[in-house]
Every structure is written in C-alpha cells, then in structure tokens.
Design a protein around this nucleic acid. Structure first.
Length: 318
DNA sequence: TTAGATAGCGCG
DNA sequence: AAAGCGCGCTATCTAA
C-alpha cells in the first residue's frame, strides 16, 4: 500500500522511530548498573535449534540495519583502556549447507573463495560473474537465504517484487544449478519423516511432530523447520565450540584481565580487549573460530571468520 | 490489576 | 487457509 497514499510512508517512518524509542532508547538505560554496564541473561536452552537467546535486555537484536538504528548501537562502547572486537563468521549457514549437502557446485564456490551471492547470481541468471550487477547480486542473496529454508515460489515473488512466472524461473534455475542441494533437501524431509528427528553435523537432534501429518499445511510447516534445523543447529554448535575454545585460550595465555567475552550473536562474538593486545588476540581468535571443523570433513569447505576493532559497537564492520 | 494472545518489528 | 527458519520486546486488547 506504500504508494497508494501519501500518509503510508509517514506511518512507516513513525513506526521506525517509535520502535527505536520504545524498545531501546527508553527501555535500556534504566537497566544499566552502577558502573554503566549492561548485564543480559543468556538463555542456553531456549531455542529449539540449539541457538542461545538473550533477555532483559535482548542484546542480540540491537539495531543496525538503518542509519538511525545504527546510531543506537554506537552507544555501546568499550571501557577506558580497552577496545571492542567483533568477530564474525562469514556465510556460515551457506557453507554448512554446502558441506552437509555435498553439492559440488556450491562447494567449489567456497573452495575458490568466491563471493557466493555473486557466483550464485552468475549461475542462476546465466551470465559471467563480472557481468553481475548490484540488483542481480541482491536478488541472488534473497534466493540464497530463502530457498534454503523452504521458501516457496510465492514468497520468492513477494521478496523480489517480481511476477510469479519469473519467480518460478529463478526457483527452477537455482535447483537445476544446485541439483545435489535440491536432492539433499528432499532427503532431509524424507529422513525426518522416517526417523522423527533431524541431526546437526555434531549429532544433536531435534524431534518433530507433524512431519507425518496428513494435513498439508502442518506437514509443510514441519518440513520447512526440518530443512532449517541441521543448518541453523550446526551453526549454533560451531559457535558454542568456538566460545569454549576461546576461553581455554584465554586461560592458557593468562589473558583473564585483558580479554573479556561480552556477547554472542549467533554468528559473531564480541570481546573487550586491552589496548595494545588487540592485533594478536584477534588473529588468535580468528584462527580458533576457523579451526572448529576440519576441512577434511567438509569436502574442503573452510569456516571463514574475520575480526574488526572499534571504540563503539556501531563502528565494527559486519 | 494481572495474565495471555496478537500485531508488529528489532536482530541473525 | 496457508505457503522461509530462529529468537525477544513493546504496545495493545481481552478475559478473569
């Protein structure tokens, strides 16, 4: 309806401002302790996929996507004498999908160190990688994240603001290109129906009701959850292992007074590091994060992790 | 006044 | 009747 009346954009603008004001600017400052530090509560068994969650306040959903939102993130700063370090896994879920499925085309994209969205755009739109423009890459990104989680043609159409026919073509071309991935997703559905659960790379299970339901919507819903579970779940396992190994490293190197873990946001870790130690520590943590899964077990796909430094959270590149 | 449900939206 | 997964928080409404 955005274009149907001049008031609509204003309503969206009002909602954005009201969301930021009510949820963050008004609500968070009262939670600061006497040292102006914020203490969230980690829920370690709250999410069915194995992810953690945080509450009071939820610190895994601090704004970033809009300029005004990012301004709120800038209010999170490191202590005197310390810098903030953010370390992100790049495209973990797609890498996990690549090696869980064994799809050679997807695996090769990562083995060659290519930009996965650009490469997929090239494959789906049938052009050379250097002929991929910004819009094609954006669309490929939507397809990459959406299709993996069972997004249908109609949702794809909505997301790409295109016709049903064109969405259908993208959908077909994607699975024609990545046919082994398509086969894998079908196998996950079938195997989940047979066994009643999915497993992550590390063997953690999630059980499903509804996967054998005769009611189409119930079954389709369970199938989408089942497709997502091994991928999101493996990501959760990976970063938890990384967090443990980083703490072992901190203990071994006697860095307890120099490196403080602050936050985990599903595919990224936030630390506060004593000034002067950040370069070495970041390199070490990157190495730990990359080493969680041996590429021998992933058809050569490596886990890529990259750190960045800033005085405030908004400065960190991600 | 409180508890629960819903809409909407912030994040990965 | 619904058609991408996983969360938590605020505002709002209804029922008790």
């Amino acid at each position: 309806m955005r274009r149907s009346h001049e008031i609509i954009p204003l309503i969206f603008e009002y909602r954005e401002l009201q969301k930021l004001l009510g949820t963050y600017i008004d609500a968070i400052p009262p939670l600061l302790d006497k040292n102006d530090r914020l203490h969230t509560t980690f829920i370690q068994n709250g999410a069915v996929t194995g992810r953690m969650a945080t509450k009071n306040p939820g610190l895994q959903n601090i704004p970033m996507r809009t300029e005004l939102g990012r301004a709120i993130r800038k209010a999170f700063i490191s202590d005197d004498g310390f810098v903030l370090a953010g370390l992100d896994y790049s495209q973990v879920e797609l890498r996990i999908a690549a090696f869980l499925s064994g799809d050679e085309k997807l695996i090769d994209i990562f083995k060659r160190g290519e930009d996965v969205h650009r490469a997929v755009a090239a494959a789906v739109f049938k052009v050379a990688p250097d002929k991929v423009d910004h819009e094609m890459r954006r669309r490929a990104k939507v397809i990459n994240f959406g299709i993996l989680y069972g997004m249908g043609v109609l949702a794809l159409k909505q997301n790409l603001c295109t016709s049903r026919d064109e969405a259908q073509r993208f959908y077909n071309d994607y699975f024609e290109t990545f046919s082994t991935l398509a086969k894998y997703l079908d196998e996950v559905k079938a195997e989940t129906a047979r066994r009643g659960y999915t497993e992550t790379f590390f063997g953690r299970r999630r059980y499903f009701d509804g996967i054998k339901s005769k009611i189409p919507f119930i079954r389709a819903s369970a199938e989408r959850m089942a497709i997502n579970a091994p991928i999101q779940g493996t990501e959760a396992d990976v970063i938890k292992l990384a967090m443990v190994r980083v703490q072992e490293y901190i203990a071994k190197e006697k860095l307890e007074k120099d490196v403080y873990p602050l936050l985990q946001v599903h595919d990224e870790l936030l630390y506060e590091i004593k000034k002067g130690k950040e370069d070495k520590v970041i390199k070490d943590i990157e190495k730990i994060m990359r080493s969680i899964i041996d590429p021998k077990l992933t058809h050569g796909v490596v886990l890529e992790a990259k750190g960045s430094i800033g005085k405030d959270w908004g400065e960190l590149k991600s």
